[in-house]
Each structure stands twice: as structure tokens, then as C-alpha cells.
Amino acid sequence: MKANEVPQDITYYEGKKRACYALNDEGKYVIVPSSGWDVEAVVNGLAVDEMAASLEVTRQAVLAGSKSPLCYHMELRQMTPEILAKTAGITKFRLKRHLRPEVFAKLETSVLDRYARAMAVTREELKTVPT
């Protein structure tokens, strides 16, 4: 790749630039900052859209009362039950029960606080999902 071929397609990195290695006119490798490449936007977009879509499904499920809000916040933070269980210091078995709304509704505040701290949200936020 030559220095003038380094993609500057879109300001896709939200104003930040990324270093690319490219050949300058004398055939030497130099670092050229790139503002973004269409190709990356496509592949990243696929992943981001998919994540957003599945988050929306979960949100609807929470509003419909078939999943607990914990499920939504866990997905929002891109966590799996394994990661969240370890971070909050609660066994995976217990955590999976807490994904059921009727179990979640009866949780003590001390348990809720542990989840809230693990995911950097407040206790009130944890109990609800954005409508």
C-alpha cells in the first residue's frame, strides 16, 4: 500500500485517526494516519447492528415481562453470565435465576447493589429499562 492509497474515506473513528503502515515516495515504510475505510465500516456495522438488534429484542422481552431487566443491562455491557457472575461475585447458577423477572423482583438491595456496581449503573437504573 502506498501512502497516498491509505483510505481516508469517512470520518468513521469519530474524529480520531488510526495508524496505518504505508510506503512513501521513496519506497520507505512510514506511519500514515487514516480517518477510516469503507470496508471496515461495513464489517463493523454488521456487528454493531446485530448487537443493537438483539438488545432491542431483549428490551421488548423485558417490557413484556418474560425477562428481567438484569438481562438487558448485562447485554448492554456486552457481558455474558460468566463474566457478570465473576465481576459481581455471585455464582452463575444464582445469576441465571435472577434473569427471571419474578425472581429478580424479590431480590434484596444488597444483591442489587452488587450487580449495579459490577455494571457501573445505579440501583434504580438496574430495575428499569429505557422505554
Partner: peptide
């Protein structure tokens, strides 16, 4: 598509200097 996009993401997106570190190795 999902599998393919994850390969390309590992190749370009995660700070590789382009072409999955191949340009950096050429340097």
C-alpha cells in the same frame, strides 16, 4: 457473513497497521 466479517474485523479493525499486521511486518 457473520463469520466472514469477524475475520475482516480481526484483520483490519483491531489496530493492525493494515492487512492483518502484514504491512507492519514488511516494515
Amino acid at each position: 457473513c457473520r463469520e466472514l466479517s469477524s475475520i475482516v474485523r480481526m484483520q483490519e479493525e483491531v489496530g493492525t497497521g493494515g492487512a492483518g499486521f502484514r504491512y507492519m511486518y514488511a516494515a
